[in-house]
């Protein structure tokens, strides 16, 4: 089993992830080809330049827009989700254990963080994940739209970190835990193409073709 997840399955996972990534990116590109009618007569850039404000008005304007920002509306969630996403990215990429494997396999040296730091990041990440779970269970508006998938994907996301943590601390049987860890990581990578984890990909493209004032290119990509 260990050999399977270390070998063929790992390549399958990477292949699915990369092919899926490219496929979705291309799909995004095609979908954004058609120009949408733009809802608003005033573009974001114009809006910024309208009006002659005194410093006091400027301050108030800033305060209002801050109040209405993600951070103003959901301070806790915004901070937690930022930490969650940074840990999600940084931990696996700069993990000494991962990079030792890379070195053993291909003699590639990559920057690693001290293990005590990545260990701490993992713990923080797990806490954030737990926070998302609680939030989904407790907050009525989230309960109203949550499906099995939402819980399941949260589990898929957290699983590699949880099992990685267990494996690192050698809780339970190391080899078994490592196998589950690798497997869960592979499942997560593969899930990116097919589930809402796809926002990993879309994050980079989406805002270019929304046709509201929050869009960057007014309803379609313009490059």
């Amino acid at each position: 089993m260990y050999d399977l997840v270390r070998g063929p399955l790992m390549w399958v996972a990477f292949a699915v992830f990369i092919v899926g990534f490219v496929y979705r990116a291309v799909q995004m590109f095609i979908v954004s080809k058609k120009k949408e009618k733009f809802f608003y007569p005033v573009s974001w850039a114009e809006k910024q330049s309208i009006g002659d404000y005194s410093p006091e008005e400027h301050r108030l304007k800033w305060l209002v827009s801050f109040k209405n920002s993600m951070l103003g509306n959901y301070p806790i969630v915004t901070i937690v989700t930022s930490i969650f996403h940074v840990c999600l990215f940084v931990t696996p990429i700069f993990l000494l254990g991962h990079n030792l494997f890379l070195y053993k396999a291909w003699k590639i040296r990559f920057l690693s963080l001290p293990e005590s730091i990545t260990d701490f990041f993992t713990l923080i990440f797990l806490l954030c994940g737990f926070f998302f779970l609680l939030r989904r269970i407790i907050v009525p508006r989230l309960r109203a739209i949550s499906t099995f998938n939402d819980y399941f994907l949260l589990l898929i996301t957290i699983a590699p970190f949880l099992t990685g943590y267990f494996a690192y601390h050698q809780w339970f049987d190391y080899k078994t835990m490592l196998t589950i860890h690798i497997l869960s990581g592979e499942i997560m990578l593969m899930a990116v193409t097919f589930t809402k984890l796809g926002h990993i990909i879309f994050f980079f493209f989406n805002r270019f073709h929304i046709s509201s004032e929050y869009g960057l290119c007014q309803g379609s990509r313009t490059w």
Partner: peptide
């Protein structure tokens, strides 16, 4: 629809 993270933000 498929991308919506159901995050409620």
């Amino acid at each position: 629809l498929f991308l919506c993270a159901h995050c409620g933000l």
